[in-house]
Simulated assay, not measured.
Amino acid sequence: MKLLQAINLTKKFPNKLAVNNISLTINQGELVALLGPNGAGKSTTLNMMIGVSQPTNGQIIFGEKSTNIKDYKTEIGVVFQGSVLDDDLTVKDNIMTRANMYAKPVQLNSLIKKFELESIWKQPYCSLSGGQRRRVDIARALVSSPKLLFLDEPSTGLDIQTRTKIWEVLEQLRKETGLTIVFTTHYLEESENADYIYIMDQGQVIAEDTVAGLQKKYTQNVLQLDYLNGESKTETLDNKDEAIKILTENAKLLANFEYRPGTMDDVFMNLTGKEIR
């Protein structure tokens, strides 16, 4: 079921066309990634969908009706790249202040436990590490039991343990509550768990599909063969079955081999280029 649609969204600034007539569909319960190089328009698109910025043209449909942010702002949670929490308040006060805004907030004990906030519950937010802050940011965004969670670069600068923990909890919440998540990231391996991906560049959507669909369209699988006689050969293949066939036929001649399927890194580089933005 369609939860949110952005139709022909455009955002013009005085000296820049940041987003140029894009359309997105977010289905209930999906994990949707919005990818692109710096300046592609990802954050501007998110800002329009969450109401921080008004589109120059286009419309947003939440559920089944054309709407504006006032109609669905209580249905969404947002985690920005930079935190909006109060540095001087404790973790408890930051989260409870948010919870008191809603008649039926989420079960806080469950949220605190999931994000392992017990040990920092009474600490000032300003005293926390980057990973601790991010866990608090996300927990606070989930206090209202939103249907749709927006995450703008949620794991930038975090160590692998914290990143893994955050995504484990979010995946658990998706299974338990049907939470829909839209996120941007520069860690492309994170996008490989997405149900659907939009890739942006220069303010436009240049590709969209499932992970498997994008990999099929924009990458090749590589088989590196090292022979006993010292020769090496690289094959580009459509699928692993071709690799198995070649390996079977040449098994007695090989000293070593490496099979590497196409990744989202390959998709991204093939679509957006290798130059630094």
Results as ranks from 00 to 15, higher is better:
residue 262 G to H: 13
residue 210 T to H: 07
residue 208 E to W: 01
residue 143 V to N: 13
residue 245 K to A: 12
residue 27 N to H: 14
residue 189 E to V: 03
residue 166 I to H: 05
residue 67 T to W: 02
residue 163 R to Y: 02
residue 247 L to N: 06
residue 85 L to Q: 10
residue 237 L to N: 00
residue 133 R to D: 07
residue 270 N to D: 11
residue 72 Y to V: 08
residue 133 R to E: 05
residue 163 R to K: 09
residue 142 L to A: 09
residue 176 E to C: 09
residue 144 S to K: 14
residue 225 L to Q: 05
residue 15 N to L: 12
residue 184 T to L: 02
residue 15 N to K: 15
residue 143 V to A: 12
residue 97 T to K: 07
residue 178 G to L: 06
residue 102 Y to F: 12
residue 16 K to N: 13
residue 37 P to I: 04
residue 60 I to D: 05
residue 230 G to P: 03
residue 216 K to T: 15
residue 169 V to R: 13
residue 94 N to R: 05
residue 248 T to E: 07
residue 228 L to T: 10
residue 263 T to W: 10
residue 32 V to T: 15
residue 261 P to V: 10
residue 99 A to P: 08
residue 202 Q to N: 15
residue 241 D to E: 15
residue 63 G to H: 09
residue 103 A to M: 10
residue 117 L to D: 04
residue 120 I to N: 02
residue 25 T to H: 04
residue 61 I to G: 04
residue 163 R to L: 02
residue 32 V to N: 08
residue 137 D to K: 07
residue 276 I to Y: 02
residue 145 S to E: 12
residue 221 N to F: 07
residue 208 E to Y: 10
residue 153 E to I: 06
residue 203 G to P: 12
residue 253 L to K: 15
residue 53 S to V: 15
residue 257 F to C: 03
residue 45 T to A: 02
residue 237 L to I: 08
residue 77 G to V: 11
residue 130 G to W: 02
residue 7 I to M: 14
residue 20 N to F: 14
residue 132 Q to V: 01
residue 271 L to H: 09
residue 273 G to E: 14
residue 127 S to P: 02
residue 145 S to I: 13
residue 138 I to Y: 12
residue 186 H to V: 10
residue 221 N to T: 09
residue 200 M to Q: 08
